[in-house]
Amino acid sequence: MKYLVVVILFFSFLNCKQDVREDMSAQSLVDRTIEVSGGHLIDSTIIDFDFRDKHYMSFRNKGVFHLERRFKDSVKETKDILNNKGFMRLIDNIPFAVRDSMAVKYSASVNSVHYFSVLPYGLNDKAVNKELLDDTTIKNKAYHTVKVTFNEDGGGEDYEDVFIYWINKDTFKVDYLAYSYNESDGLGLRFREAYNERYVKGIRFVDYNNYKPENPSMPLIKLAELFDQGALKLLSKIELENVTVN
Rank of each mutant, 00 (worst) to 15 (best):
residue 1 M to R: 08
residue 2 K to A: 15
residue 8 I to A: 14
residue 9 L to K: 09
residue 10 F to H: 00
residue 11 F to I: 00
residue 16 C to Q: 12
residue 18 Q to D: 12
residue 22 E to D: 11
residue 23 D to V: 00
residue 26 A to G: 01
residue 28 S to I: 01
residue 28 S to N: 06
residue 30 V to K: 05
residue 30 V to H: 00
residue 33 T to R: 05
residue 33 T to L: 06
residue 33 T to Y: 01
residue 36 V to F: 02
residue 39 G to F: 09
residue 40 H to W: 08
residue 49 F to P: 04
residue 49 F to N: 03
residue 50 D to C: 00
residue 50 D to S: 06
residue 51 F to C: 00
residue 58 S to V: 04
residue 59 F to H: 12
residue 64 V to F: 13
residue 73 D to Q: 01
residue 73 D to E: 11
residue 74 S to M: 05
residue 78 T to V: 15
residue 82 L to C: 02
residue 83 N to E: 01
residue 92 D to A: 00
residue 92 D to P: 02
residue 98 V to P: 00
residue 98 V to H: 01
residue 102 M to N: 09
residue 108 A to T: 06
residue 113 V to Y: 02
residue 117 S to M: 12
residue 117 S to I: 12
residue 120 P to E: 03
residue 124 N to L: 13
residue 125 D to C: 07
residue 126 K to L: 01
residue 128 V to H: 07
residue 133 L to Y: 10
residue 133 L to M: 03
residue 134 D to A: 02
residue 136 T to L: 00
residue 137 T to Q: 15
residue 137 T to D: 07
residue 138 I to C: 12
residue 143 Y to V: 03
residue 151 N to S: 10
residue 156 G to Y: 08
residue 157 E to F: 15
residue 159 Y to Q: 13
residue 165 Y to S: 08
residue 165 Y to M: 12
residue 169 K to S: 12
residue 174 V to I: 14
residue 177 L to M: 05
residue 181 Y to R: 08
residue 182 N to R: 15
residue 183 E to A: 15
residue 193 E to C: 10
residue 194 A to H: 09
residue 204 R to E: 04
residue 207 D to E: 09
residue 212 K to Q: 13
residue 223 L to P: 02
residue 230 G to C: 02
residue 235 L to D: 13
residue 238 I to N: 12
residue 245 V to E: 04
